[in-house]
Simulated assay, not measured.
Amino acid sequence: MSKQEPGQPVKPANQRGAARLAAVQALYQMDIGGAGVLEVVAEYEAHRLGQEVDGETYLKADAGWFRSIVAGVVRDQTKLDPLIGSALQDDWALSRMDSTVRAILRAGVFEIIERKDVPVAVIVTEYMEIAQAFFSEDEPKLVNAVLDRIAKQIRGDQKKKD
């Protein structure tokens, strides 16, 4: 969760970053607690995005971007998981990974596939930064490697052109 100075305008790009972070948190919550997509999206939009929760202020987020990531990951999970699984090292299994890492990878892969208007480099960097916010060990490198492999599969060499 990032702090925001009062009265400081939030740039649209930052609102997308905040939406990505909130989407990862919502996907994690759904994975752990078994809550439904409509319930979780409604809770985030009403009580978290741009709100203060337990003394922390959530950044104002692009609610449409947030909604599209969460709903898209839930809708496409049966396509996303095998793609992620094929990009992992042989000794890694998606089902045995930390729920937060799974949420980050699913959201990142969803954007690589669906948001062709967003450069791969932006997507990979944003989700790697989210991984760094939660982990200090190998997880950010894993997120980078997996998203990079899948981006090359899906979008070819676009990353080099960005």
Rank of each mutant, 00 (worst) to 15 (best):
Tyr28Cys: 00
Met30Trp: 01
Asp31Ala: 08
Ile32Met: 09
Gly36Thr: 04
Gly36Tyr: 04
Leu38Arg: 00
Val41Gln: 07
Glu43Trp: 13
Tyr44Gln: 15
Ala46Trp: 05
Leu49Met: 10
Asp54Glu: 05
Thr57Cys: 04
Thr57Lys: 02
Leu59Val: 14
Lys60His: 08
Lys60Cys: 05
Asp62Cys: 13
Asp62Trp: 09
Ala63Glu: 15
Ala63Gly: 09
Ala63His: 10
Gly64Thr: 14
Phe66Cys: 11
Arg67Asn: 05
Ile69Asp: 01
Ala71Gln: 12
Gly72Ile: 03
Val73Ser: 02
Asp76Met: 00
Asp76Trp: 06
Lys79Val: 04
Gly85Arg: 06
Ser86Pro: 05
Leu88Pro: 00
Gln89Glu: 13
Trp92Lys: 00
Ala93Val: 02
Leu94Ile: 13
Ser95His: 12
Arg96Val: 00
Arg96Ala: 08
Met97Lys: 01
Ser99Glu: 02
Thr100Ser: 06
Thr100Asp: 03
Ile104Gly: 02
Ile104Leu: 01
Ile104Gln: 01
Arg106Thr: 01
Val109Cys: 02
Val109Trp: 01
Ile112Glu: 01
Ile112Pro: 04
Ile112Thr: 05
Ile112Val: 09
Ile112Cys: 05
Arg115Val: 07
Lys116Val: 12
Pro119Lys: 14
Val120Asp: 06
Val124Leu: 12
Glu126Gly: 05
Tyr127Cys: 02
Met128Glu: 15
Glu129Thr: 01
Ile130Trp: 11
Ile130Val: 05
Ala133Asp: 06
Phe135Ile: 06
Ser136Cys: 04
Asp138His: 10
Asp138Cys: 00
Pro140Val: 07
Pro140Met: 08
Lys141Leu: 06
Val143His: 03
Val143Phe: 01
Asn144Ser: 05
Ala145Arg: 11
Ala145Leu: 06
Ala145Ile: 07
Leu147Met: 11
Arg149Tyr: 05
Gln153Pro: 03
Ile154Gly: 11
Gly156Tyr: 08
